[in-house]
Design a protein around this nucleic acid. Structure first.
Length: 937
RNA sequence: GCCCCGGUGGUGGAACUGGUAGACACGCAGGACUUAAAAUCCUGUGACCAUUGCGGUUGUGCGGGUUCAAGUCCCGCCCGGGGUACCA
């Protein structure tokens, strides 16, 4: 074969490995560039053609940047903790580390075959004690810090203790668990029922160690707390909010329940505002930023205290529409609200308790399914509008959530659709306070119109009224302006084996963190990977799972996102035994310049990483506030399934265009048995024993299959494995084709048919450098103007395309270039050597091979990207398209330097013009230099 | 419901800042080379009308608008994909 890719690719992959071509060190004289892929979870199935898409793009970009003179950090590793290996361990007893190791080896082998330019000396695995030591180390720091709202950053808990000791906590503004003192006063009689969590230095001195620790826990950034969590019985673990969708686990799709449990949390809410603000400073897609904005869910409004009739209590509500306070005709508490028992009169208590019982027994999923079902109960108590003391009834309903705001609302049916439906259902009054809508059929929710029926804000615009009410509320001391976030603290413990152990032990029930010198706290062996009989996590099975002193260690493990939150930092200095990463390394590499990966991580990894990084920034480790400067989401590659049509109750299959003449059942067929939708009928018979005697009803002597675009999945027989394609066409063709498929960010179906075209191109490219006998041959003559024009046109286009990550159009550009050079029979070294450098990021093996044949003895990686020179593109005439009234009619070749008046004259003189002018005088002739001429008739 | 993204030939897609719509490929049709096949090369290929020749009409989901000029900008819809959901 003329172009022996198998030999060439093996040769260069070996060369790169042996010569450590992509080994990277800090080079202060060179500008740095950090290109990162989202590291994969090494699953047992190996890579399919969808996985490498982003890796190929980032590899091209990395290689391009190197040619441009940058010192490029381009590492790869494995997000090695994950559910499948653990599930497999439960079934077979095989240690997840063994399974993971095997899968990692397979991933590595597959990636090597594609010719990536990773610096493998920097590989990290999250399950490696050398790595997770620093995950545990960061956890200890999180535990030992609190968020000071005055300083706007995290500070050591030791500082906080100093403040408590000398001043108490009255002046501390910290990010704390809301109403944390309620919990404490409930279980510790030393704190009274109406204690509001404020204490003096003297109080602090009088507290016991246990009391102090319990108070401090509410300030820590990593804290243990009793809370309503997502419990997945099938997986035997709790899950974070982003790991649950529609009441089912994202992994495995098992039902999820709400349950009160004591768990570790990360106080990510402390960073809510900064996570939001940071989005304006990074180059991410709008849709991804929007997803994060929505997830963080900032809303501005006010907290207002409503006096309760015949009671000392005041009901605290949160609203984003304080302007509508005079339209509030009832109040609603969430079923979990503390006040329910306190304010409900005996006459109503039975009904209220019955309702709450009913609500509690409904699972999360039932609640979701019944969103439209309106339910609630009147408590018998009344609230007074704090401005005019008008009473309104207090209800309990499950459409108000305990976890958001204060768990209580003032209902304004005229201007909130949920309140409106509720009011209609229970025949409660509806008072219009914003003019401009029609509230006879539905509420008027828009923040637009003039206030009516509203006392001191009558006649104001909504926006002004909001401000006016907040101002008045503040003055009267009945509330304050407030910002609320939808973001919840992240549940950080999992009841699983295969994860990072917490560096935590318990002394008299109080958690303490280990000393740094005890790290890494290694995952202990266990006899089985299941919970214990008493329902404790698998780590409780480990022998001697306690500290040297004999204190029991935490048996939960950390979640998947723990290890992936800071891995990009560890890559900067992955073998450092003393530090997470050195100052020198982080000062040089700073943060990730380009991050490529899937957008399924929008509200998970990408939020946690930003939080993790901001925390490390606060404590002086990271030097950039944002970890990922630019982020691109590659689209998914969907499968293209093939379908066959089986006649009902027989083993006869009918071809696609004849199928409607018969009663048939649609069946998926393995795509490897199909070429261009034509079935290999013999292969089909051999596919499965039950098909051995299959008969076919053919059209034009062929069996034509149907097709469908679906997700790539084993069960749909549409998985395309890169190994086979690489065996058949080579890695360079594979790389080019993945890029040629379409824009990086777009989802698109995989279609193996088109790969032939790219393969043809590669061979054509090869032939440019060889004579008919396949002997390498370049000529040293001076290139002609036409040849240089083609080269420089290509340099410019390819460079622009890579810069804006438009890899598919760059491939087209190469094709055009080779077509044109081929036509000129160009074999000039001066042109073809530069072309090799241009294509080397895309087809590195081919480029290296030909580069060496050109006589270079250093890798093409060390070459410099050719410099585009405008002068070569200069032409002295331009072929103007001439339009009449905007319709292109003919072309006219004119000198480039020709002036507008001359061009106008030339157009009118052109023979073709008379036909379109129809004897009339043109109104106007528009000339856009080197673009177009338009004649208006 | 709300928020994003998208809709262009038989197919994947191109047209970046309004300026020749369909680049580059796939597929298909015809042809050359060959005993034959593979490989390679050449020609054609949005639709419709006309083909003896030139050519003409129409065309980027639909309906309007702005402009000398709209796939691109504006307004109103339709459809598909993703996110999110009693968040007050």
């Amino acid at each position: 074969m003329e172009y022996n890719f198998q030999e060439i690719e093996k040769k260069w992959q070996k060369y790169w490995l042996e010569n450590k071509t992509f080994h990277t060190e800090i080079e202060p004289a060179k500008p740095k560039f950090y290109v990162l892929d989202m590291f994969p979870y090494p699953s047992g199935a190996g890579l399919h053609v969808g996985h490498p898409l982003g890796y190929i793009a980032s590899d091209i970009y990395s290689r391009y940047k190197r040619l441009k003179g940058f010192n490029v950090l381009h590492p790869m590793g494995y997000d090695a903790y994950g559910l499948p290996a653990e599930q497999y361990a439960i079934q077979t007893g095989t240690h997840p580390a063994v399974t993971t190791e095997k899968n990692v080896a397979r991933y590595r082998e597959q990636m090597d075959k594609i010719g990536f330019s990773y610096d493998w000396d920097r590989e990290v695995k999250t399950s490696d004690p050398d790595y997770y030591k620093w995950t545990q180390w960061t956890f200890i720091r999180l535990y030992n810090h609190w968020y000071d709202l005055n300083a706007g950053k995290s500070r050591p808990v030791d500082d906080l203790v100093d403040i408590f000791r000398s001043l108490g906590n009255a002046d501390v503004r910290a990010s704390v668990t809301p109403n944390w003192y309620n919990e404490l006063s409930k279980k510790d009689p030393a704190f009274s029922q109406d204690w509001k969590g404020v204490f003096t230095a003297t109080d602090w001195a009088s507290f016991s160690e246990k009391q102090r620790q319990e108070i401090l826990m509410n300030y820590r950034l990593a804290y243990l707390s009793e809370a309503m969590v997502n419990w997945c019985p099938e997986l035997g673990t709790v899950l974070a909010n982003d790991e649950v969708a529609n009441g089912f686990s994202v992994r495995g799709n098992h039902p999820v329940e709400r349950k009160m449990m004591r768990q570790w949390f990360l106080r990510i809410t402390a960073y809510a505002q900064r996570l939001l603000d940071g989005l304006d400073k990074i180059e991410w897609s709008e849709s991804l930023k929007d997803q994060q904005k929505y997830w963080i869910g900032r809303s501005e409004g006010a907290e207002i205290h409503f006096p309760i009739k015949d009671s000392e209590l005041k009901l605290n509500i949160f609203t984003t529409r304080p302007d509508t306070i005079f339209g509030s005709t009832f109040m609603v508490l969430s079923p979990e609200h503390d006040y329910i028992e306190k304010i409900t009169p005996l006459s109503h208590i039975e009904a209220v308790r019955a309702y709450i019982g009913e609500v509690k027994n409904r699972s999360e999923r039932e609640r979701m399914a019944e969103v439209k079902k309106i339910s609630g109960v009147f408590t018998g108590a009344y609230c007074l509008n704090p401005f005019n003391l008008k009473p309104s009834p207090i209800w309990v309903a499950d459409y108000v959530l305990a976890g958001y705001g204060t768990g209580a609302i003032m209902a304004v049916p005229a201007h909130d659709s949920r309140d409106y439906d509720f009011a209609k259902h229970f025949r409660l009054p509806i008072t219009e306070v914003v003019a401009g809508g029609d509230i006879s059929e539905s509420s008027y929710d828009a923040k637009d119109g003039l206030m009516i029926n509203s006392d001191f804000i009558n006649g104001m615009q909504v926006k002004d009224a909001i401000k006016a009410v907040i101002k008045r509320v503040n003055e009267m001391g009945i509330g304050k302006g407030m910002v609320n976030f939808r973001l919840r603290d992240a549940i950080f413990s999992r009841q699983r084996y295969w994860g990072e152990p917490f560096p935590v032990y318990f002394k008299e029930g109080i958690p303490y963190v280990l000393d740094d010198s005890e790290l890494p706290l290694e995952l202990p062996p266990v006899d089985a990977y299941l919970p214990t009989e008493t329902g404790e996590p698998p780590l409780a099975r480990a022998k001697n799972w306690k500290t040297k002193e004999g204190y029991p260690l935490e048996t939960n493990t950390m979640p998947g996102f723990a290890g992936s939150s800071g891995y990009y930092l560890r890559y900067m200095d992955p073998r450092n035994q003393q530090e997470y990463f050195s100052k020198e390394a982080v000062n040089y590499w700073q943060n990730v310049d380009l991050y490529i990966g899937g957008d399924e991580h929008a509200t998970g990894h990408l939020i946690y990483s930003r939080f993790w990084n901001k925390f490390l920034f606060d404590i002086g480790l990271a030097i950039c506030e944002e970890p990922f400067k630019k982020l691109v989401n590659q689209g998914k590659i969907q499968g293209r399934s093939n379908l066959v049509y089986r006649l009902k109750g027989s083993n006869t299959f009918v071809s696609y265009n004849l199928k409607d003449q018969h009663e048939h059942i649609v069946m998926h067929v393995d795509v490897s048995l199909v070429d261009n939708d034509i079935l290999d009928t013999q292969g089909f018979r051999n596919w499965r024993p039950d098909l051995a005697d299959a008969e076919f009803i053919l059209e034009d002597n062929q069996y034509v299959c149907g097709h469908a675009v679906e997700k790539m999945s084993k069960s749909l027989y549409n998985v395309v494995n890169p190994d086979e394609l690489i065996m058949h066409y080579g890695a360079d063709t594979f790389r080019l084709y993945e890029m040629f498929l379409g824009p990086l960010e777009q989802s698109k179906p995989w279609d193996t048919n088109g790969i032939e075209g790219v393969f043809r191109f590669i061979r054509k490219f090869w032939r440019l450098y060889h004579d008919e006998e396949n002997h390498f041959r370049l000529s040293d003559g001076a290139p002609e103007a036409a040849e240089l024009r083609i080269l420089h046109k290509t340099i410019k286009k390819v460079q622009d395309d890579i810069e804006r990550l438009s890899f598919n159009t760059a491939v087209s550009t190469f094709m055009i270039c080779v077509n044109e050079l081929g036509e000129l029979k160009c074999s000039k070294r001066a042109v073809l050597e530069d072309l090799l450098i241009l294509i080397s990021p895309y087809a590195p093996h081919l480029a290296e091979e030909l580069w060496q044949a050109c006589g270079h003895n250093e890798s093409i990686t060390r070459a410099r990207f050719p410099v585009f020179k405008e002068a070569y593109l200069a032409e002295n005439s331009f072929n103007y398209p001439v339009s009449f009234n905007g319709k292109m009619r003919f072309q006219l070749e004119l000198p480039v330097e020709m002036q507008v008046e001359e061009i106008q004259k030339a157009v009118l003189d052109a023979v073709e013009s008379s036909k379109w002018l129809e004897g009339k005088n043109p109104k106007k002739i528009i000339v856009v230099h080197k673009k177009i001429i338009n004649v208006v008739v």
